[in-house]
Design a protein around this nucleic acid. Structure first.
Lengths: 98, 98
DNA sequence: AATATATTTGCATTATTGTGCAAATATACA
DNA sequence: TGTATATTTGCACAATAATGCAAATATATT
């Protein structure tokens, strides 16, 4: 899971809406259901889902003709917390002056 | 501090380099020092710094002719952790089936 | 096999963002 | 006041990314 890919994926308004939509569900849902949260074409939603998936933020599971997506909550949360740690503590140089 | 602005700010390779550079220091540093971590023009670095600042990730302090930047570690870390919480727990619908 | 539904992909277009250079601004110093 | 240094801004251009539509693919159903 690459930090930069994740941030890039989270930097678009529609992808944020999609992620929030997916986050608010406790069951995986299909593309049509995801799409209802934004006004863009279904094909665009499909592409956004693929970007989120590629970043490791969500996962897909094919059942019949439908594809069900769900958020990789644990993994994404872990990455964000790790990044928080790094930003807070990553001081390479020693403090020289008091 | 807007989550989406922050993610957008963190979604560019050069801004990531710049942020890592700033993070690795325990003292604020000026634009020239920031710039040494990437090969783009100084003016580009200046613009990247302004984007990071605008997102609330870093802060600027003017001293003489120089501008010193530093990372708002606490705030950024807090925002990332909050986002982690939201992603992990933000289930609006009740679980219907066991 | 033909038809219907769900999703993805090709392609063209538009919109947004990143970049370098030159010029402008701000401040210090001779 | 003139000159030097640090940073930012205007502008043009290149590179990326978002979008909609139509067509392709995949799977189920009749």
């Amino acid at each position: 899971m690459e930090t930069e890919l994740v941030f890039k994926a989270l930097s678009d308004p529609n992808r944020m809406k999609i992620l929030n939509n997916l986050c608010s569900r406790d069951c995986p849902c299909n593309v049509g259901d995801v799409a209802c949260c934004c006004t863009v074409d279904l094909s665009v939603v499909s592409r956004h889902l693929s970007i989120l998936k590629n970043a490791g933020i969500i996962s897909a599971e094919k059942r019949g003709k439908e594809v069900f997506y769900h958020v990789n909550r644990k993994e994404v949360a872990a990455l964000l917390r790790q990044t928080a740690e790094n930003i807070e503590k990553h001081v390479v140089h020693e403090r020289r002056y008091k």
